[in-house]
């Protein structure tokens, strides 16, 4: 396996929606080829933090960011930073499966096509490789031309993961990717995440603490826009340093 290094360095990140501060002085490093879980009660800023990492917050007109997010030694908030390249490098999987109303093939091929891949053979290869990586190939290989809307929720979510993999990102952000899925589909996605971390860096927001404990290497506990604790997952859950973390993971609030 590749040697782990800090792939993203976040320094003094602050995020405002209008007058409301959603993130306060966040400074953490995210390690490559690992799974980082973000936990915390609703509205604590974990999703906002996730969306800062590929600048999806730009879609919110009143959002304002200060501080830096260093990816490959460059600040992604620097003026003139190539957002297209950023989102290609940092892919995102959403809470609700959101396949396009196209065929399965076209969903996976969408990203590469947008980025200029036209060769049909090359596209075929990418689609097959991505679907295999997303552990979906065996289920759909004989009906690639069928609409993606006909897949089950779990399959749709794995298709969305395949769609992200097709643009060959380095980092994959996941915003509660299993919250709309049943337990079996959830397990499949968790297994997949475990496989994917060999090649990718994964940051995942989850409301499910067992899930965070099962799949992540490191965990950040968010509260009111701040990171209260950021530790190795086993340490954070077995030996929380902060009283508030302990209260949260033992279910006393949140």
């Amino acid at each position: 396996m590749m040697k782990k290094y800090d792939i993203i360095e976040i320094n003094d990140l602050n995020l405002f929606y209008g007058d409301t501060q959603a993130l306060k002085d966040i400074s953490v490093n995210i390690k490559s080829n690992s799974v980082t879980a973000l936990i915390g009660p609703s509205g604590c800023g974990k999703s906002s933090f996730l969306k800062s990492l590929n600048r999806m917050n730009d879609l919110v007109p009143i959002a304002k960011t200060t501080g830096e997010v260093m990816l490959d030694d460059k600040d992604i908030f620097e003026q003139g930073y190539d957002i297209v390249a950023l989102r290609k490098r940092v892919g995102m999987v959403f809470q609700k499966p959101n396949p396009f109303p196209f065929s399965i093939y076209d969903n996976v091929a969408y990203g590469p096509r947008v980025h200029g891949v036209k060769n049909k053979k090359r596209l075929d290869e990418i689609v097959e490789k991505s679907l295999k990586q997303a552990a979906l190939w065996d289920e759909v290989s004989d009906r690639l031309k069928d609409s993606a809307m006909g897949l089950s929720g779990g399959q749709q979510q794995r298709l969305c993961i395949a769609r992200v993999l097709a643009v060959e990102p380095g980092v994959i952000l996941m915003d509660e990717p299993t919250s709309a899925l049943d337990p079996i589909a959830t397990l499949k996605v968790e297994d997949l995440i475990h496989e994917l971390k060999k090649e990718f860096t994964i940051v995942i927001v989850t409301h499910n603490m067992q899930q965070a404990a099962r799949i992540s290497d490191e965990t950040a506990f968010f509260l009111m826009g701040e990171i209260i604790e950021f530790e190795k997952t086993s340490d954070l859950f077995e030996n929380p340093k902060d009283k508030r973390t302990e209260d949260y993971i033992t279910g006393r609030f949140g």
Partner: peptide, 27 residues
């Protein structure tokens, strides 16, 4: 056209114009 389609496309690095022409309009 659901916002999630648009976000999905932008999240893959498509430009607003590409998103519009390739996702919103066909939908």
């Amino acid at each position: 056209v659901p916002r999630s389609f648009v976000e999905g496309s932008l999240g893959l690095g498509a430009s607003r114009m590409q998103t519009f022409l390739r996702v919103s309009l066909p939908s």
